[in-house]
């Protein structure tokens, strides 16, 4: 049933395949990695420094 509906769906969509588009892929991964690095840096900058709060 699932495969049938997906086949019907594919028929509606058509079979034209997107060409290229690596730029979009790299943009996604680049933005994510950059955000993770920035957030890690902000965590590092805000790290607790008080001596008494050590567990």
């Amino acid at each position: 049933m699932t495969s049938l509906t997906s086949l019907m769906l594919l028929a509606q969509v058509g079979s034209g395949r997107l060409q290229g588009g690596w730029g979009y892929v790299w943009a996604c991964y680049g933005i994510s990695v950059a955000a993770f690095v920035l957030y890690s840096a902000s965590l590092w900058a805000r790290r607790p420094r008080a001596t008494d709060s050590k567990e």
């Binding site: 594919l10 969509v13 079979s15 395949r17 997107l18 588009g21 892929v25 991964y29």
Partner: peptide, 21 residues
């Protein structure tokens, strides 16, 4: 995801965004 998996039938290489999104 970027090098080993095959490109999608419909979306081609763009589908590789899935592995981060």
């Amino acid at each position: 995801g970027l090098a080993w998996a095959p490109p999608d039938r419909e979306m081609g290489e763009v589908q590789r965004i899935m592995y981060v999104h």
